[in-house]
Design a protein around this nucleic acid. Structure first.
Lengths: 173, 173
DNA sequence: CATGAAAGACACAACAT
DNA sequence: ATGTTGTGTCTTTCATG
């Protein structure tokens, strides 16, 4: 809950698109492309960070090159009594769990896991299954990627096929 | 296929860790933390990009703020004859599909989808199911996230619980 | 291969429009 | 809210151990 109603305009979206494409693009260069001065771009970026529209700048690495050769999704089934949100505490203790979310369907939660290899993944899975209120797990191992993008990268800011202006639409000011 | 066998050392990993934490960190600041000059850091980063260990710098945005309020994973079952890799072509035509991979288990592929809302998601799903060689889909809608981290950001480069040096281990030089 | 110095580009913070 | 100016820092290239 950020106090201010964000209300992004065209320029904000172009700035975000540029920064998603390359987080190290200079404000001057972004400004040149959209017809704004560098300080103006910086101010908008600061605002977007303040409003938590931009949540951070990160670097994409090829996990394989760092030794994380195995990737998997694990559906987790909890005991009826235990609220799946309690998983939040557990999940933090596993560095191999890179994402965790509650989901609809038979499973209570879905985990994204990275391991150095199958044997490491098996070891992680055994530890997870030993957690008190976890009833069963179903694992799906990723074989190969068909698309470059990551699940976390939101779809392009300028909504494509979607309703022209998805969410906050009123012109600022 | 990059010609050179990368072989990362401790300094490379610290640089990568710093850039994952904040892709806009200055080379000078990184250098100060690990005892290297700014140009030295830049040269290593350039090498890491060249070796495709670092694949890019991107910005994390809160998808909800951009109007992408619905997130789902969809398991795709293909017709026996059609190779799941053919999905690569199809998948590119959907801006809503932010990740796609082939997987083990009953399903042939797993899609990560972002939509502006349930009705938009339903519309996307219908289009996908109308594709020629797709037999059935199973959808799982994300309710809430239990972890902040992004799936693509591989678990911290300084491998934590994992085998001390996962992959490339020989000292450079 | 890493360092150090120099020129150019950039970020950042006033102030003015 | 944006543009402009000024200052300090950073990036980047080139020369050097």
């Amino acid at each position: 809950m950020t106090s201010h109603p964000p209300a992004l305009d065209e320029l904000d979206r172009k700035i975000i698109a540029a920064l998603i494409a390359n987080a190290r693009t200079s404000f001057a260069e972004i400004g040149a492309e959209i017809g704004l001065s560098a300080p103006a771009v910086k101010r908008r970026v600061d605002r977007l960070k303040e409003a938590e529209v931009i949540t951070g700048f990160t670097t994409m690495v090829s996990p394989g090159a760092l030794g994380w050769g195995t990737e998997a999704y694990v559906e987790v089934y909890c005991d009826g009594a235990a609220p799946p949100r309690r998983l939040a505490d557990v999940v933090r203790d596993y560095p191999e769990i890179t994402a965790a979310m509650t989901v609809t369907g038979g499973a209570d939660a879905l985990l994204h896991i990275r391991a150095t290899g199958i044997q490491h993944f098996e070891e992680v899975l055994e530890r997870i299954r030993a957690e008190p209120f976890i009833r069963k797990t179903i694992s799906v191992i990723v074989l190969s990627h068909l698309l470059a993008g990551s699940p976390e990268a939101a779809a392009s800011p300028t909504s494509p096929t979607a309703p022209s202006r998805p969410y906050g639409e009123t012109n600022r000011r």
